[in-house]
Amino acid sequence: MKALRAVFAPGYVGLVLLFLYTPIIVMMIMAFNQSELYQLPFVFDLKWFRALAHNDDLLEAAANSIIIAIVNTLLSVTLGTLTALALSRHHFRGKAWFELLLLPSLTMPWLITGTAMMLFFFWTGIGRGLHAILLGHVALSIPYVVFIVRSRLKAFNRSLEEAAQILGASAWQTFWRVTAPLLAPGIVAAALFAFALSFDQFVISYFLAPIGISTLPVEIYSAIRKGFTPEINAISTLIILFSMGLMIVFARLSKFAGEP
């Protein structure tokens, strides 16, 4: 009985992980497989990666995605961190409402957020394009940044800042020498999160991308819809490896950030 239980726990979790990883592993295998129709046996070939190097549409979309993700990260982290500071260091009437206002972009289906933005941007002349996609990504990222940075702010005691002040530090010195260094792991974690969120974001970009301009997920979607080429497997493999690399860094940092 005891032996059974000892096997059961890792066994069950192992099965869940198998379910989670099956499609990812299949995709990676297919990225290196020669057959276009996923036929087995497996024959190792890098031809899809070579083809990828000549697929200008995909590469341009990838470049767009990276640029948007970087600008999104800079903007959302700056705005989100300032908001987190305002919300946790000030007490004012109606604060609960301001916190509540962060929730819609977290909890509404992206389909609704995306179509509403598309309609509004079109109507007002903001239009569609990379700038519109950026507007949308930042709106989605800010609440996450606020929550990550705020939880970090909560984790370190307010008395650290008070201690700095009473030791003679000005508001500026307190921020740069105490608050900012302690906040840094949270800010880096938020930045990684914002980057990944933007880089993977499909729904919002899909509605805000005009014909001829696209981001990587939008380009992949249209390739899938058109009839697929295995180059998608190749680039997806690269994305997954890249995203997972980011995630591992993120996990390291948030673990570090968790320590008081």
């Binding site: 993977d200 994305i239 995203s243």
Partner: peptide, 14 residues
């Protein structure tokens, strides 16, 4: 954290 679209698509192969 890997692309949701890509993960969904890979199920078609499975």
């Amino acid at each position: 954290w890997s692309n949701a679209l890509v993960r969904t698509f890979s199920w078609t192969m499975v």
